[in-house]
């Protein structure tokens, strides 16, 4: 009985150490991916291809979701604010919630599902089919050739996607609020402009989305690189990418919000 407890403790310790080890490994991995000098020609072309895969191909899902979320915000905001006769603040409500919160967070979640999982699966498959090993044997560091362009593409794309999401969302709010529900356009825009500050709201939202971009892409490429090279391993790694990045985004969002807007 006593031995059993000790065994369990040892097991717990082992698995704890395992987690710490995997965190350390992924940290080193991030460092190498960021600071690896890409010493070969044509890395611009590699980055462009990844920007296309990661950014451009996410454009449609991000803008369509942004439009719908903006429209819902407009509708909900109107139905609540009309009771207090301050439907002029709908613009403010839509803009602030999109720019500060929903833009970065929802974009990051969509990004994890659309681009992150694809990155993990692609890299995992490259590992399973020995493409990474053969690259190493040819004398090319896969961290430079495969990981770094994907990582940077993710980091660059995320803030741009978040900005597009927020803007399209606000347009959705305008369509619902101004065109359909007949809020006076002037008060809609002026209320928005008075309450939204460029540095504090738009700027902080962008900082958030940049942080989320780093975290989601990091998780995605590392899970792919670290995947067990079998079909089951890759599917598990893909699931882990989506789960871990969603949790990380939501958790980090709370921390960042507390730091950025908490004092007010």
């Amino acid at each position: 009985m006593k031995l059993d407890v000790l065994d369990r403790l040892a097991q717990l310790g082992q698995s704890g150490l395992g987690h710490v080890q995997s965190l350390g490994r992924s940290g080193i991995f991030l460092f190498l991916a960021i600071f690896s000098r890409a010493g070969f020609s044509g890395r611009g072309a590699l980055l462009i291809r990844q920007l296309y895969n990661v950014g451009f191909l996410s454009l449609i899902i991000v803008s369509v979701s942004g439009l719908f979320i903006g429209m819902v915000l407009g509708l909900q905001g109107y139905s609540i604010l009309i009771r207090y006769g301050s439907e002029g603040s709908v613009g403010q409500l839509v803009a602030l919630s999109l720019v500060r919160e929903l833009g970065p967070v929802v974009t990051a979640l969509l990004f994890a599902g659309r681009a992150g999982s694809a990155l993990t699966a692609e890299i995992g498959l490259m590992k399973a089919t020995e493409q990474l090993s053969s690259m190493e044997m040819i004398g090319v560091d896969p961290l430079k050739r495969v990981i770094a362009p994907r990582f940077w593409a993710g980091v660059i794309s995320m803030p741009l996607l978040a900005a597009i999401f927020s803007l399209v969302g606000i347009l959705g709010g305008v369509i619902v609020g101004v065109d359909w529900l007949g809020i006076y356009e002037g008060s809609f825009w002026s209320g928005m402009q008075q309450s939204v500050d460029f540095v504090d709201d738009v700027g902080n939202g962008m900082v958030k989305s940049l942080v989320f971009g780093v975290v989601v892409t990091w998780i995605a490429v590392f899970q792919g690189y670290d995947a067990v090279p079998t079909s089951e391993g890759i599917s598990r790694a893909t699931t882990r990418t989506v789960v871990y990045s969603s949790l990380a985004v939501l958790g980090l969002d709370f921390i960042l919000t507390a730091v950025m807007f908490g004092e007010l």
Binding site: S190, Q194, F198, V202
Partner: peptide
């Protein structure tokens, strides 16, 4: 989008 957010939305 960023520019529009700056000019149009945050005034």
């Amino acid at each position: 989008a960023l520019v529009l957010l700056a000019v149009k939305v945050s005034g």
